[in-house]
Design a protein around this nucleic acid. Structure first.
Lengths: 256, 256
DNA sequence: TAATGTGAAGTTTTTCACAGCG
DNA sequence: CGCTGTGAAAAACTTCACATTA
């Protein structure tokens, strides 16, 4: 599995571009939908439309995985689902702990798509002793004291932080010390982690601020266009269309 | 406010790189924290560390805004807070509607950082008639029927979708038809919108899948390193360190 | 013939490294 | 002297366009 080279025609020498990795889940979702409708094959054009990207990009992305298509025909849906799942590591089960069971933590715990796609909520953890034992989404909440034990016992390597900002770094440190090497952070803080630990963040206020920036610009352009203040060439220059974040931006959400 | 040119030394001709825009909220957060501690100035080095980026990038980012620093000294915290806020359009108030008041919608409504930073929850909207009138975060939930009226009356241009995936596109269409031009989408679906409408998405399962990819790779490298299977030069190649998403990736979350 | 797979070109973003200013 | 501001180089990513092949 870590070899490379040897079988398929040639392609890939390890090292899928990060931008491509970030799009694979998108393709996978579109493909899963097609699969459920029993669609046997898709062209890059169709699949790209469903995933909200352009077809050249999609083909390039897939080319990093290998030659999984058939010229003149398209891609076999089932086969691609499998290949992408494997590439993303979804053929194995990832136990995940969620720390901070407030509004957001509960929402995450209740999220169905969790279990379905290779992830399993191993534990819900909260610092409030009053919450201990209370079931959320059918899983009893455990106290923070148990954190290390849970992580080690279940071999958890992915942690989700949904605590208030003030507690996030501390929780993060404990998670990492206990063996977690990937963290999804919903707290509005920059986390410091040692090399080798991956952090992704989701931050509502950041996303809103990015939207506000563009919103403001739209208003400005309108005004400018009406009054003829800004040089048209510049005023007219707008991003291709309605992108869905993945451009080269940041994520965003927030705990209670 | 939409003019440009005229005052500061010279710099900037409109068109801040998208990657830079996406980082401004990060800088702003770090600066706000410094401001609260009454720190008068910061160097690019310090601020970069607080924001989790490298200093060259930060300086380059700021250079698109203008020359707001003092050589040999650093940046004036208050002044920068103001400039970035203005640039992001946070000096005005953005009314926002949240559609879909389930677990996640409620979590979002309760998020404090909302009001503080230029955003105001104008309304909470849900399709369940049983929820109508029920207060969430002190705001009474209104029925979907009211959607168009609310948006027009309050001049809402930013909408947050926290509905199940199945309802998202329909809600989106109504929002856009009513005048919303920026959407933050928490539903796991690609939204189709007309040109001129911005969409950003936040998707838990996508984020987890990206983490799983890297997690799997780590495991693979360990194994490979132990056995000496993969050429070290390749196996060792790892991303600089622990990034916080903003690399050039995608976001992620999920509704109930 | 239709659609993939991909070199090559183009664009954006990051990093380097240092001149220049307070 | 220290730190900003920025050209220039490098890297990453996207798009083009077409040869290739089922």
């Amino acid at each position: 599995m870590a070899t490379g080279r040897t079988h398929r025609p040639a392609t890939r020498s390890r090292g899928i571009p990060e931008a491509t990795v970030a799009r694979l889940p998108l393709y996978l979702r579109a493909l899963t939908a097609l699969s459920e409708r029993s669609v046997p094959t898709v062209s890059s054009e169709e699949l790209a439309a469903a995933a909200g990207v352009n077809s050249a990009k999609l083909r390039k992305d897939f080319s990093y995985l290998g030659s999984y298509g058939t010229r003149g025909v398209g891609y076999d849906v089932e086969y691609l689902v499998y290949q992408i799942s494997r590439e993303l590591g979804l053929t194995q089960d990832w136990p995940v702990v969620i720390v901070g069971i407030g509004n957001l933590g509960a929402a995450l715990a209740n999220y169905g798509g969790f279990a379905s796609r290779g992830f399993r909520v191993a534990a819900l953890i909260d610092a409030d002793p009053g919450m201990a034992g209370k079931p959320v989404a059918g899983i009893p909440v455990q106290h923070t004291d148990e954190l290390e034990k849970i992580i080690q016992d279940d071999g958890v390597s992915i942690g989700v932080i949904a605590t208030p900002a003030g507690a996030a770094q501390q929780v993060c440190d404990r998670l990492v010390a206990a063996g977690v090497t990937s963290i999804l952070n919903f707290a509005p803080t920059v986390l410091n982690v040692p090399e080798g630990v991956d952090v992704r963040k989701v931050d509502l206020s950041i996303e809103l601020q990015i939207l506000a920036f563009h919103e403001q610009r739209k208003a400005g352009e309108e005004a400018a266009a009406d009054a003829g203040v800004v040089p048209p060439a510049v005023a007219r220059k707008q991003r291709p269309s309605a992108d869905q974040g993945p451009d080269g931006d940041v994520p965003a959400v927030m705990p209670a």
